[in-house]
Write a protein that binds this DNA or RNA. Structure first.
Lengths: 256, 256
DNA sequence: CGTATCTTTGATCGACATCAAGGTGCGTGG
DNA sequence: CCACGCACCTTGATGTCGATCAAAGATACG
């Protein structure tokens, strides 16, 4: 349910009510009636599920311009909370539907958003069965793509705890993996909320780059051009961190 | 997409083509067009996803009377294979839809099946983050309910490998957990394909029973009566295996 | 019966969790 | 502007669960 765009949707201007939420405050409670959807205006929000044993599973992060709460049918299966202080616009589903039927283009966008959010959750599921390092790199790739237009640094508004709850890891493990990547010269941990990419994607063989592309995107690149563009993007640059892991092996096996 | 009934649906008699599949043979290939659904007449079938690294994730088991392949939209995201020699009836979706519109009752049943199958997958996801023992017991509870009208023994047509691929465990671990439960007097492993329940649910406190009910079913029992009936059922009896684990703790915490 | 397949059992290993101190940044109030 | 305090993060030591490796039973099947 998330848009890549970095700013609120102009089409939604004037709809619904925008209101601020303090860090850690609850925006949607589990089992709330699902008659509204939400757009992040500023700050960062997550959807999550509280488990009976006290743990928290974060299902997704949402940034400025992202919509969430769309997937729910009658009641929300996931709650939502503010990761940082945030402004969130609340829109009645009715209003959204009206907009969608008036604006065919917009309906398409909504559909695409839903599909993308679902795909992201599917991906996450698969990665949750991988090693801590793979999960962290996967996370960095996602954040590079979504929060960091600047190519060389990734901004992480959430805490280590939040990252851990997303990836199913303890904060100590998150910290150690970051340190390990730094020790190997791949990244630089620049304060709590910034990761600087230090790796150089240009010395990767085409074969490896292909394997990484496929592992991250779940498909082959369609053209040589697409692969090159991707290599130069923030996402691509972050993805080359996978070169440090066993991912090339999967690629080899997949080819045979 | 699975029916609890133990025998093929009379309404589907005469529809589609029934044909035998040898153990391990493929019934649906991933990315096949999804214009048919399937009913298990005899034997056991599973749906699964092959991962790039060679592992297999089993998404669900289907027994006599169960339907599978319903969830797919345009192409199947999951493949299906025979776990044992099996007979499977293949039905065109068209025919099924015709039946559904002629028979309002049947349409309802289809919907309920879909919902139940989805819920089962959701449950599985949550249990995949638990300990090996919890996963095995969860599996036994599911099998008790679905394959074993007889109260005291659970029939497991699938191999240890299949169980492992379902629960994300290695076969050695599956074997060891079974042995551990047996050592503790809770079950008896009677040959490869049978588990005999040896535990006595009558000495559980009402409080614990409630906690287990809630952990397994995801909700509180609605009446005293419901809890009692459940305790006596195969599912309930198997579920008391959870008494051996930390589940009571979750219950306590949830209550506070 | 003999062979292949599946399962059990044992020994060891490794990854991540857990437990326990420190360290660092950051806002608040003096 | 500094210093105190708190929340967050890092680092180290140790523990535990399940994977892996290896080999010895069972069971099924031709």
């Amino acid at each position: 349910m998330s848009i890549q765009a970095q700013s609120p949707d102009p089409l939604l201007q004037g709809l619904g009510i925008t209101r601020p939420y303090r860090r850690r405050s609850e925006i949607i409670r589990e089992d709330d009636a699902a008659n509204r959807v939400y757009e992040v205006i500023s700050g960062t929000v997550c959807t999550c599920k509280m488990l009976r044993d006290g743990r928290r599973q974060i299902a997704g992060f949402y940034f400025s311009g992202d919509l969430f709460g769309l997937e729910a049918a009658r009641t929300h299966a996931l709650s939502a909370q503010a990761i940082t202080d945030a402004e969130v616009r609340t829109i009645k589903k009715q209003a959204l539907n009206a907009l969608a039927s008036a604006h065919g283009d917009f309906a398409d966008r909504l559909l695409a958003l839903t599909a993308r959010d679902l795909a992201r959750k599917q991906d996450l599921m698969l990665f949750l069965s991988r090693s801590a390092q793979d999960r962290i790199i996967y996370f960095l790739v996602e954040m590079a793509r979504r929060t960091s237009p600047k190519e060389d640094s990734i901004s992480l508004p959430m805490s280590r705890q939040d990252i851990g709850d997303y990836l199913g890891l303890k904060i100590e493990t998150v910290s150690r993996v970051f340190w390990d990547l730094e020790r190997r010269g791949a990244i630089e941990v620049a304060g709590r909320h910034t990761i600087v990419l230090r790796n150089d994607p240009t010395n990767l063989s085409a074969k490896r780059l292909m394997a990484i592309f496929e592992a991250v995107k779940g498909r082959q690149p369609q053209t040589e051009q697409e692969l090159e563009t991707w290599r130069a993007s923030a996402e691509g640059k972050a993805a080359t961190l996978f070169d440090l892991t066993t991912i090339s092996i999967w690629g080899e096996r997949a080819r045979s």
